[in-house]
């Protein structure tokens, strides 16, 4: 069985696709049974995956790989229950009951979701070219030479662009953290 350490070195594109395919149907069913539709499920699922992935990569999740799916589902459920409780959902009828949060769900989950929302906001503030270059390097795991070829640049230019884009993301996120 894979350990968490070698699982963390896995190609992120493949890992994220697998996490999606192993959990989305389950979560969609859960949302459909609890006052939501497929679009709600997709939105909340993306937020839940982002928080879980960030915690996995930053070492806040320390369980075994087979526990990770349960962790993803727990965060997504927490987020959906929170959404239902927020009162934004007009379509909940009085006969329906909102599921209770598990005891294990805590402020930590709420903080993780808040942080991942802030990071998403910052990532989307980067220009298209920045998103493309850093995405090719960190997500697609392309080499500098491949990115240089695809974007008609030199490797040195790509290194500099990547550095500047990541520093811009860092600056935006630290500013966001000050506001939180």
């Amino acid at each position: 069985m894979k350990t968490l350490t070698n699982w963390l070195q896995e190609d992120p594109e493949r890992a994220l696709s697998r996490i999606y395919s192993e959990n989305f149907s389950w979560f969609e069913q859960y949302v459909l049974q609890n006052s939501g539709n497929s679009d709600d499920a997709r939105d909340i699922f993306q937020e839940g995956i982002a928080a879980a992935w960030l915690n996995l990569k930053s070492g806040k999740f320390s369980g075994t790989p087979d526990r990770f799916n349960a962790y993803v589902r727990q965060i997504c459920k927490y987020k959906w229950i929170d959404e239902l409780r927020s009162g934004n959902r007009k379509k909940i009828s009085y006969t329906e009951t909102i599921p209770e949060k598990d005891d294990t769900e805590s402020n930590t989950t709420s903080d993780s979701l808040e942080q991942s929302t802030a990071l998403k906001k910052c990532f989307l503030q980067l220009g298209e070219k920045c998103q493309k270059v850093v995405g090719m390097f960190y997500y697609k795991k392309k080499s500098l030479a491949e990115i240089a070829h695809d974007t008609q640049n030199t490797e040195d230019s790509i290194k500099t662009i990547k550095y500047r884009c990541m520093m811009q993301l860092r600056k935006l996120f630290l500013e966001e953290m000050k506001r939180m």
Partner: peptide, 15 residues
């Protein structure tokens, strides 16, 4: 912090 930023690039590119 850099770990978080890199992870965010991965997951939001996937999104």
């Amino acid at each position: 912090l850099q770990r978080q930023l890199i992870a965010s690039v991965q997951v939001f590119t996937h999104h």
